[in-house]
Nucleic acid binder design. Structure first.
Length: 413
DNA sequence: AGGTTAAGCGCG
DNA sequence: AAAGCGCGCTTAACCT
């Protein structure tokens, strides 16, 4: 790593060499099986119709389920359901979190939740993606944008292939429609816990460095430290809490936010955080140092010198200042991860171009690369890909890449 | 008719 | 009073 990273270096080492990689992705694109999506669309239509009927019965009238105005009137006026939360403009909120809460006591919110989830799936993915298949290439070609994000990540649009569903079973059917060409498989390679590894690198916290160097399950290790138990005695619930703490730290979350996330009281959440900082003092120092350095310099930067300027870091408005502080905490980690995968993309691309291999990078999803790989090249590509991604940067902790293979994108995970 | 904003939600 | 970072897309509601 350069002793004094510079913005010029980021531009010359990362951004310019990435250009041909991205144009190549545009030329390759992803194959999508539209008959699978068509089938799913039919099923969704049927289910959405049932749910709409159920909702109308529970409401005692017909209404547009997608209309916040009509929905609000029915839930909070007609049915007299209490308003738990309001939107920025003062209207009663009907977002998922609220409906989940209300679903415990009332039948309609539950129906709305399922309807909303499936409607989103259908309109954004199932029905939309087939219309985006290029008639000449038979593939979907997204646009990757190299500039525009605050942290140095790419973004993807028209269509956005960086938010294809994965968390629900119904959603994964969309992912199953992303398929490999005949004779090929899809290979998905993703960095394991890259932002937490970068946090370990930046903070140089001994326990965190040790945990990663030993190849430990980081959430389990955190749980063991925070809850004072042996790693093999960590419960599911303790690991879940530790995971929330770890992610919360990356985002600069407060005790209030952690409490809400875990459904515990604020005092308890504050104790968790305090205990965490006792066990990982380097992380606490890092958080404080980055706040101070941001306030002094007016910017933060990644390991490679990519800067993010934070004009509100010294704002007199406390809320704005705190928001800038959270960004100051998150941006070096998110941004360094973005730099690393960009370097990996350049290296992988050059390696493939300068070989006889015909495998291609076809997608990037922040910490994941997806390649279309002929079966004859499978072993060589998997090995090379993993090696190049893991050696894209040398941090104080190892970078680890998990690789999956399948006939479709879901299987490859 | 066409653009913009707000709310909501998909992903890392 | 707010309270967790970064994106893009869809619909409704509002505006010109």
């Amino acid at each position: 790593m350069a002793a004094e990273p510079t913005l010029k270096k980021v531009f010359e080492d990362i951004e310019l060499p990435l250009v041909p990689v991205l144009s190549r992705i545009e030329r390759t694109g992803a194959l999508v099986d539209d008959t699978l999506l068509f089938q799913q669309s039919q099923e969704l239509s049927a289910r959405l119709g049932e749910l709409e009927t159920e909702a109308w019965e529970l409401a005692g009238q017909q209404f547009n389920l997608a209309s916040p105005k009509q929905l609000g009137q029915i839930l909070f006026e007609k049915l007299q359901i209490p308003v738990l939360k309001k939107t920025a403009k003062g209207a009663p909120s009907t977002k998922e979190e609220v409906l989940q809460e209300l679903a415990l006591d009332y039948p309609l919110p539950k129906v709305l939740l399922e309807h909303r989830g499936l409607a989103k799936l259908k309109s954004t993915y199932t029905d939309k993606l087939p219309t985006m298949i290029n008639s000449v290439t038979g593939r979907i070609h997204t646009s990757y944008h190299q500039s525009g994000t605050a942290t140095g990540r790419l973004s993807s649009s028209d269509p956005n292939l960086q938010n294809i569903p994965i968390r629900s079973a119904e959603g994964r059917r969309v992912r199953q429609a992303f398929i490999a060409a005949p004779g090929c498989k899809l290979v998905a390679a993703d960095y394991s816990q890259i932002e937490l590894r970068i946090m370990a690198h930046l903070s140089e916290d001994p326990s965190l460095l040790a945990a990663f160097s030993a190849g430990q399950d980081i959430h389990r290790a955190t749980a063991a430290e925070v809850f004072g138990v042996e790693t093999d005695e960590v419960t599911i619930d303790q690991r879940r809490s530790a995971k929330a703490i770890n992610f919360g730290l990356i985002y600069g979350m407060s005790a209030f936010g952690l409490a809400r996330q875990l459904g515990i009281n604020r005092k308890q959440a504050a104790e968790y955080i305090e205990l965490y900082f006792t066990r990982y003092p380097g992380v606490q120092s890092y958080m404080n140092n980055i706040r101070h350095s941001a306030a002094e310099n007016g910017f933060v930067e990644t390991v490679f010198g990519r800067r993010l300027y934070l004009p509100e870091i010294n704002a007199s408005n406390g809320m704005r200042r705190q928001a800038a502080e959270r960004t100051a905490i998150n941006a070096p980690m998110q941004g360094t991860a973005a730099d690393i995968i960009k370097l990996a993309m350049i290296n992988v691309h050059n390696w493939l171009e300068n070989s006889d291999l015909t495998s291609k990078i076809i997608m990037q999803v922040h910490d994941e690369l997806v390649l279309e790989v002929p079966e004859s090249e499978m072993d060589e590509v998997q090995k090379g890909l993993k090696g190049l991604m893991e050696s894209a940067a040398e941090l104080l902790v190892p970078l680890v890449v998990d690789i999956g293979v399948g006939d479709n994108w879901d299987e490859a995970h």
